[in-house]
Structure formats: structure tokens, C-alpha cells
């Protein structure tokens, strides 16, 4: 299988503080990677480096045919090929669901107006929210907003999707519907990197799990092995209370 994402020796500093201390990671097309670890272990920072939202000081990231870390890059083209969903949904409050979805296709891709409806229907049906087309974000529950955010990202037809703790802001009863949407997306063969605190979900959906600790990839492998047979004390200490 071809490589969708390759991270090599990624180092990132916030001032003098080294947040990422040389991260290496390889993701094949169609892989679903769960990234787990304590707060402050660098998971989200790594994710934000991948689509250029966060600059980094050393290393290289190859993604969707682009190389970050070797001089200036056309970040805008990269970002149309790498979707990102955030913890706080970040829907645009002054636009309807349909307008949220078509904004980037309209402004960036110049998609003609005649094809907007078709696109909106296609991506909204994938997250089961066809009936909310004309609603405004604040008329939706957190779970629905997050599903719209996923649909909005899908509308750009990305080759890789990044999920940054997308269920952390949700009530437990709303988490399920978002995870279901992500799982269905995984089943379509979308390449995905998920930073998550949902251990059960990671184990069940992710083909591979990466445990980050102190700014490094501490342990990684097929999810079954990571959760079933952790090799390091740090990983054991991290997942044991979580699995109870």
C-alpha cells in the first residue's frame, strides 16, 4: 500500500520548551491511526503540524504529495487535500449548515452554484443530517455540529482526514453519534489520523495505535497489540485506568 503520510524527525519548540522531540510516523493509504497519550504529550501539536497550522523547527512531513519542512510550501493546496476536524467544531455561526459546507468549495475551488445542492446532499447524507441543511449552527446539538464539521471537511474531498479530540467537548450521550460517523468514514477507506481519548473506540476502529509520551512516539503498532499487550510501563500505566 502507498504511503499517505510520512513524518520524519519532527521537532517543535514553543520558545525554549521542546514539545516534539523527534517524531517519526508512517501512515499507509486507508490506514486509520489513533494517537493516544496524556495531555501535553504533543499529540495535538503533531496533528496541527501536519496541515501547517503550526510551524515546526526540524524534520520533514510528507503528505498527499507535499513536503513540509523543505522551504516554502503552498499550504493552501495542501490544506484542500488534508481535512481537519477540531475539538470545538468551529462551524461558522453566521452561515447555515449548507453554506458552511459550500464555503470552501465555492471560494477555493470555484464550484459553480448549480452544483452546490448536490454536494451538500452528498456529504450531509454521509453523516445522517440531510434534514438540517438550512439550520444555523446554534440550532444544533454539539454532536450534530461536529457531524456537520465532518461533512464540511469531506466536501473538499480530502485524501487524508485529521481529527483533533473531536469528542472531548461533547456530553457522553452525544459522543456515540460522532464516533459512528467517523467509523462509517473509516469503512469507506478514508485515511485518517485521530487524536483521541476514547480508548474503546481507538481499539475498535483504528488499524494502528500510536502512544505518544513526552513529545515522542513511545510505542506504536496494531491497535490489538497496543491495547492487548503493551510493551512499556508508561503505556501500561496510561491505558490501565482508561480500560477499566
Amino acid at each position: 500500500m502507498s504511503t499517505a503520510l510520512h513524518i520524519e524527525g519532527l521537532k517543535k519548540y514553543f520558545g525554549a520548551h521542546e514539545v516534539l522531540k523527534g517524531v517519526d510516523l508512517e501512515v499507509a493509504s486507508g490506514d486509520v491511526i489513533a494517537v493516544i497519550g496524556r495531555s501535553g504529550s504533543g499529540k495535538s501539536t503533531m496533528l496541527r503540524c501536519i496541515n501547517g497550522l503550526e510551524p515546526f523547527q526540524q524534520g520533514r512531513i510528507r503528505i498527499a504529495g507535499h513536503v513540509l519542512g523543505e522551504g516554502p510550501q503552498n499550504l493552501r493546496v495542501l490544506r484542500t487535500e488534508v481535512g481537519m476536524v477540531f475539538q470545538s467544531y468551529n462551524l461558522f455561526p453566521h452561515l447555515t449548515v449548507a453554506e458552511n459546507i459550500t464555503l470552501a468549495p465555492r471560494v477555493v475551488r470555484k464550484l459553480p452554484r448549480a452544483r452546490h445542492d448536490e454536494l451538500v446532499d452528498k456529504v450531509l447524507s454521509r453523516v445522517g443530517l440531510l434534514d438540517k441543511k438550512h439550520a444555523y449552527p446554534d440550532e444544533l446539538s454539539g454532536g450534530q455540529q461536529q457531524r456537520v464539521a465532518i461533512a464540511r471537511s469531506l466536501a473538499m474531498e480530502p485524501r487524508v482526514m485529521l481529527f483533533d479530540e473531536v469528542t472531548s467537548a461533547l456530553d457522553p450521550e452525544l459522543t456515540g453519534e460522532v464516533l459512528k460517523a467517523i467509523q462509517e468514514l473509516a469503512e469507506t477507506g478514508m485515511t485518517m489520523v485521530l487524536v483521541t481519548h476514547e480508548m474503546g473506540f481507538a481499539r475498535q476502529v483504528a488499524t494502528k495505535t500510536v502512544f505518544m509520551h513526552h513529545g515522542r512516539v513511545w510505542e506504536s503498532g496494531p491497535s490489538e497489540e497496543i491495547f492487548g499487550n503493551p510493551q512499556t510501563d508508561e503505556l501500561r500505566a496510561f491505558i490501565e485506568p482508561n480500560l477499566k
Binding site: T80, M84, F86, N90, F92, A104, V107, V108
Partner: peptide, 20 residues
């Protein structure tokens, strides 16, 4: 984060200002 969401969708900084 509103601007970040717009940038992540491929909008330029100016487009993010104008539309978001």
C-alpha cells in the same frame, strides 16, 4: 479557532477575514 478552521479548509488569510 474560527480563522484556523477556515485556513484548514484551504481559504487564504484574506478570504478567511472576508467570509468568516
Amino acid at each position: 479557532t474560527q480563522v484556523e478552521a477556515a485556513l484548514a479548509l484551504g481559504l487564504s488569510k484574506l478570504q478567511a477575514m472576508r467570509h468568516v
